[in-house]
Design a binder for these strands. Structure first.
Lengths: 164, 164
DNA sequence: ACATATCTGTTATAAAATAACATAAGTGGC
DNA sequence: GCCACTTATGTTATTTTATAACAGATATGT
């Protein structure tokens, strides 16, 4: 991943190390199956972008993906990657972290479309969690909004990066 | 405001109409006072950007502010506006809505630094609300994070834009 | 007035995302 | 298989968003 965080941080990214070969293949096969179920196509560029996200140790910027796209070192063209990301987000395979302009693979059971993250401003880790959005839903209901998606981003310091 | 939402939407922005002359002046004086209290300076460009945000009917993009900055129609230079926005956010006078790349004046009592919005994908309204972050805090505590700021953005349709 | 810190003005550039349109590949009817 | 149709990709160019770097100005404390 690129260095989006505090440059004085020497910690490793803690939360989500990239998948090894075996888990990676499993995750990709799983994604294929889920696509089959809903009549969507995990085409080569989509699969490649998902693979790169799953291999990474943390959030990746779109241009990281563009640079890493070709196995031969050839970068992708921007629309290739942006279109793949759009697909992956739509299906819940990936999330965009708005406050980082970066992307992560979904770490939770793909069903819901809520995305909630704890983001370390020191080491750059981004840990997905399952939010309880009852209060948010209540607020939405009170104002009459029909909410279709929610994102929550909490910035701070992960345990490894906190001064003792 | 610029048109960031669905082009087929003919509704007015509902939530936060721009302030009229009297309320605007009051809000600005209030901001001056709060700056005095904490030994910060509401300088001319900062004040101008806050004024533009308060006058607007909805979220403004940075380049909307840049274009509207000069009373004579002269645009500002980008760093002028970005620096002012950074200041206004730091003091809680404004919020950035990450999923829109846009900015709004803070509509709540300036104290807390949590920002939560209901955003209408049709008319572009962005309504700030006071979130109950107890569940998020619990999640953060469970994972050992020390959270410094939280943003929540709920997308959907406001009452005026919903099909009946 | 002087030293210091903070803020502004300016030029240039970097980073992130999309528009537009041509080509290719999958899908269903016949 | 072949055609019509839809969906996805390849490609070029451009737009939008944001920051770096540095010189000059303004406020603050002594």
């Amino acid at each position: 991943m690129t260095d989006m965080h505090s440059p004085d941080c020497t910690h490793e990214d803690g939360a989500h190390p990239g998948l090894d070969e075996a888990h990676l293949r499993h995750a990709l096969v799983n994604a294929e199956h889920r696509c089959l179920d809903i009549q969507e196509r995990l085409t080569a560029p989509r699969r490649r972008v998902l693979e790169l996200l799953l291999e990474a140790d943390g959030p990746l910027k779109a241009y990281d993906l563009i640079a890493a796209f070709g196995q031969d070192g050839e970068p992708a063209k921007p629309p290739t990657v942006y279109r793949a990301l759009e697909f992956l987000e739509r299906l819940g395979f990936a999330h965009r972290i708005e406050s980082l302009n970066a992307y992560v693979p979904c770490r939770l059971d793909g069903s819901g479309h809520a995305a909630a993250f704890l983001i370390c401003d020191c080491c750059g880790a981004a840990e997905e969690f399952e939010p309880d959005f009852a209060p948010g839903r209540a607020a939405a209901a009170a104002k009459g909004y029909a909410v279709t998606s929610v994102t929550l981003e909490a910035r701070g310091l992960c345990p490894a990066c906190q001064p003792e």
